[in-house]
Structure formats: C-alpha cells, structure tokens
Computed example of a mutant assay.
Amino acid sequence: MAAHPLGVITMQPGASPHEQWMHMPPTLPGCPPGLEYLTMIDQILCHQQISLAEVFTGWETNNKYVVRNSMGQQVYYAFEETDVCMRMCCGKNREFTIHVVNNYNQEVMKIYRPFKCFAGCCWCAALDCCAHETFIEAPVGVPIGSVRQLPTGCTFDYAIRDAAGETQLIIDGPCLMCRCCADVEFPVYTKDKQMRVGCVTKQWGGLVKEMVTNADNFGITFPLDLDVKTKATLMGAMFLIDFMVFEDRNKNRH
C-alpha cells in the first residue's frame, strides 16, 4: 500500500484559518512524540467530516475526522487510507489505515485494521480469523497497543491491550438494537469489570444527518492520569467501533 503524501499538505486539514488549535505541550519523558496532548486532557471529541461526493453519489470515500478537546480546540486530524476496491467491495469490514497528524502536519499515530474474511460475528470472535482488531503505533513503526473484539452474544465488547498483548481495559458495548435516536454509550471498565473508568459515546446527530450521511460524532472520556498509550489505544477502539457498528455503505444509496 502506498504511503500517503503528507508532504503535499500546506496547512492543517480540517481547520479553517480562524479555528482554534490546541498548543503543543512540551516534550515529556517516556511519552511518544506527539501524544503529549493526551496527557493534558480527560476527554476528546471526534467529528467525522461529511463527504458531499458520498452523499450525492453513494460512492464510499475515505473517512476524515477532526479531533478536538472539550474546549473545541483542534488536537489532531485523522484520515483513512484505503483503496477504492476495498471500500466498495468490503464496506465496513474493509482493511483500513488511519493516519493521525498533529496541527503541524506531523504523523504522530497510525491505526491499522487488517482484513479478515470471517470477521464480524460476535459469537465467533474467540477465533483469530473471526475477531476484528486494530493495532496502534506511536510513533509510526512502534506498537503501543491493540484493540480486539471479544466473543459475546449480541453486544459489541472489546479488550484494550498494551503492546505486549495484555488486557488493560474492557469496553462493554450495548446491543446493536439500542442505537436509534439517542446517544449510544460504550462504557469503559477496568479489566476485572469492577469499576467504570470512562466511556466511548457515539453522539446522535439528528434524524436528517443520520439518514442521509454516515458521518458520525464520537466522544471519549477517560481519567486524566490514565497512561497516555492507553488513551491513544482508546482512540483506536473508537475508530474500530465506528466502522463495525455505524459505518453503513448502503446508507447513501438512492
């Protein structure tokens, strides 16, 4: 797969010249470069940008997201890299790479999901060939964590793992049938599920937007002192949830 030509970007994508950007924090020992932003916040908001081409033609395009803090300041910009055949033939189950860049157009994180022919069934996710996964690198080339779908009944549960594959947190997802006309919460618990420590929330965008486009808004809350690599891995979980649960390539068909 060809690398995205980051060098051709002349200004921060996703932001207008008058939009507020979060200032870059100082470098911190032990923190992957570019993730210093996450050490200062306990909440992020992720807004998927609407593709007019997708709305009017029904052709699935690469997803793009603006990531902001609770004050509305832009922290990151994220964009999908997937070839056309993969998007059109495999839909929400497609292989993807999400590139995350900071406000200086420097790639600080990469989120990758491999394609698996038999993935998608909640009952069979105990098998490697059937479980959706994302792998997070920060900086690019350095694994810091992964997200793996867990075998459950009708719910969408995930394990948040560190670079060694050890589970750090559990996302206890709702049943798909409960997602209409309201925010949908995916609570985040400690690995023993005894304490809730955060939440990934898909925010209801209104009837018209939900019917016409698959552009979704998400929020993630987590403890301020949570390990920065785990915070970044939760971002990887958010993108996996978006594709698995809310990405519907047929939504825009007329």
Rank of each mutant, 00 (worst) to 15 (best):
W59C: 07
V147C: 13
C85V: 14
A125G: 06
Q194D: 14
L38E: 01
P17K: 12
A215P: 00
Q43D: 10
M244Q: 10
T213H: 00
P114W: 12
Y158S: 01
V8F: 11
P139L: 01
I41Y: 02
A138N: 01
P17N: 07
G58A: 05
D192I: 03
C89K: 10
D216G: 10
R253P: 04
D83Q: 07
R253K: 15
C31F: 02
D227M: 08
A125K: 00
E133R: 09
D225M: 06
T61I: 07
R87C: 04
I44L: 12
G14N: 09
M71Q: 09
G91L: 07
I241P: 03
G58Y: 07
F115C: 03
Q194A: 14
Q194L: 15
V100R: 05
I41Q: 08
M177P: 00
D227N: 15
D157Y: 08
K116I: 13
Y37S: 03
K92L: 09
D192C: 08
K191H: 10
R196C: 14
A138F: 00
A164W: 10
I144S: 00
V245M: 12
F115D: 06
Q106I: 13
T152N: 13
K231F: 10
M177S: 12
N62G: 08
I136L: 13
P223D: 04
N217C: 10
F79C: 09
A163F: 06
E133T: 15
G34I: 01
M1W: 14
P223C: 10
G34F: 00
C124P: 00
E247N: 13
E185W: 02
L150Q: 12
V200K: 02
E185F: 02
E54A: 02
D248M: 09
C89I: 07
L28K: 10
C117T: 15
I220H: 00
F156I: 06
G219N: 07
K110N: 04
V108L: 05
H18M: 15
E80Q: 06
P17D: 13
A237C: 14
C130H: 02
